[in-house]
Structure formats: structure tokens, C-alpha cells
């Protein structure tokens, strides 16, 4: 990711076909030899046009990823949302310590006493606790674990 994540595209950056692509391809993609042709047919574009548009959407930063989404738990690993209350004067130093762990997949600063929220993704179930304990040892701060108990759906739609 070379493009800054926090740039808003001008309103005319995407046409209605781009928006239809953004909506449709969040749900799935064919496992066929020529999947862009097949997905494009449903959207009224050729496979070549779909490839060009996806490349442009990626280069613009309108999409962050296109491909298989893996479930770490099903692969024998684990995911866990974690939170820490970091004193403001130590925030950047703690961020550097936390982000240095390759197991930290996302990390956000949020408006709360628990002001640092990150996701651990590990190859093995015990990797979560091990990484959380390592972060606690390094920072002297408590890492609170919020593993998902149940998932109710993931989706997002742009105005078509």
C-alpha cells in the first residue's frame, strides 16, 4: 500500500459501473478459468474492461484488496480484537512497540479511555495470548482481549 489510506476521492472519480462492481464483487468471485469474463458478464462489461476498472480502483485507493479473504481460525490460527489504555505522552512509543509485532494486522487510535485497538492474527491459537503477554511485558500496560463469540454478518454498500 503506497497510497495514503486517508484520501477522499472526488465524487466523480467513480461512474455507475464502478459502483456496481464495488457492490457486486464484495459478495464473491467465480472460481472459473476466466473469472473476470464471467463476473463481467453479470455486470454488463467485458472481462478486459473489468480488469482495467479493478486496476484503476486499486490504484485510486477505492479498494484496499481484491482476492481471497482467509479465516485465520479455520487455518488453525486465530484472530482477536485487543484494546489498551495508553497514556497520551507514551502513545507514539507504545504504538511503535505494538506495531513491531507482525501478528498485529490492524491498529487504530480511538476516542475512549481504551484508546488503542488492534487485531492480532496468528498462525496458532496460542499465538494470541503469547503476543498479548509479550506486548504487556514490553509496555507495562494491560492488553484486554475481545475475541469474537459470534459473527452476525459483514457487508457494506455504496449508493449504486
Amino acid at each position: 500500500m503506497t497510497r495514503p489510506l486517508r484520501t477522499v476521492l472526488p465524487p466523480d472519480a467513480l461512474d455507475s459501473t464502478d459502483r456496481a462492481i464495488l457492490n457486486a464483487l464484495q459478495d464473491g468471485f467465480p472460481l472459473t478459468p476466466r473469472p473476470y469474463d464471467d463476473a463481467g458478464a453479470d455486470l454488463g462489461v467485458t472481462g478486459d474492461d473489468l480488469i482495467v476498472r479493478l486496476a484503476r480502483l486499486r490504484d485510486l485507493g477505492a479498494i484496499t484488496r481484491f482476492g481471497p479473504f482467509f479465516d485465520a481460525a479455520e487455518m488453525g490460527g486465530a484472530f482477536c480484537l485487543c484494546a489498551m489504555a495508553v497514556p497520551s505522552h507514551r502513545f507514539d512509543a507504545v504504538m511503535t512497540q505494538v506495531n513491531a509485532h507482525p501478528e498485529v494486522a490492524h491498529n487504530y487510535e480511538r476516542t475512549h479511555a481504551l484508546n488503542m485497538w488492534f487485531v492480532l492474527a496468528t498462525d496458532t491459537p496460542d499465538g494470541i495470548d503469547r503476543t498479548a503477554r509479550a506486548i504487556e511485558d514490553e509496555t507495562g500496560l494491560k492488553v484486554m482481549l475481545f475475541p469474537k463469540l459470534e459473527e452476525y454478518f459483514i457487508g457494506f454498500r455504496v449508493q449504486a
Binding site: 462492481i21 464484495q26 468471485f29 472460481l31 479493478l54 479498494i63 484496499t64 482467509f70 457494506f156 455504496v158
Partner: peptide, 9 residues
């Protein structure tokens, strides 16, 4: 694999 898909920004 949960799905093969795009992630919007």
C-alpha cells in the same frame, strides 16, 4: 476462505 472478493476503502 471466507470469500474471494474486494474490500472497499
Amino acid at each position: 476462505i471466507r470469500r474471494i472478493a474486494l474490500a472497499p476503502n
